[in-house]
Simulated scan of single mutants.
Amino acid sequence: MQYRLSDHAKKRLQQRGIKQEWLAAALAMPDITENDAEDATLVHALKEIPEKGFKRLRVIYNESIEPVTIVTAYFE
């Protein structure tokens, strides 16, 4: 999936130590996807990351824009 990072997402990925490869894996092969409860344009992709002790990475992106735009990402 082609995507771009919002300025907020860039800052948060660096701040939270989230690797681009983990982000790409969550988007390409999520364990589960969820629609956002408040914003119909947003999707949540969730993926367990083995290198982080199988913590679940949540990637929130706007699918109404081409390419999709990553809004934020964090470990649960």
Rank of each mutant, 00 (worst) to 15 (best):
Q2K: 14
Q2N: 13
Y3W: 12
Y3N: 03
R4N: 08
S6P: 00
S6D: 00
S6M: 00
D7A: 09
D7N: 10
K11Q: 15
L13I: 12
Q14S: 12
Q15D: 12
R16C: 07
R16Y: 10
E21F: 13
W22H: 03
W22R: 00
L23P: 03
A24T: 13
A25T: 07
A25N: 04
A26N: 06
L27Q: 03
L27N: 02
L27G: 01
A28H: 09
A28Q: 15
D31C: 09
E34A: 03
E34K: 07
N35W: 04
N35I: 06
N35Q: 10
D36K: 02
A37Q: 06
E38I: 15
E38N: 14
E38C: 07
D39A: 09
D39W: 11
D39K: 14
D39M: 10
D39V: 09
A40C: 11
A40F: 15
A40W: 11
T41V: 10
L42G: 04
V43L: 10
V43G: 01
H44Q: 10
H44C: 03
H44M: 06
L46N: 02
K47G: 01
K47M: 11
K47T: 09
E48L: 06
I49F: 13
I49H: 08
I49K: 10
G53I: 12
G53T: 12
G53N: 11
F54I: 06
K55E: 11
K55N: 10
K55F: 05
R56G: 03
R56S: 05
R56E: 13
R56W: 08
V59Y: 07
I60W: 03
I60A: 02
Y61W: 08
S64N: 14
I65N: 00
I65E: 01
I65T: 05
I65H: 02
E66G: 00
E66N: 04
E66P: 01
P67Q: 08
P67L: 07
V68Q: 12
T69Y: 00
T69A: 02
V71M: 02
V71K: 00
V71W: 00
A73P: 04
A73V: 13
A73C: 12
Y74V: 09
F75P: 02
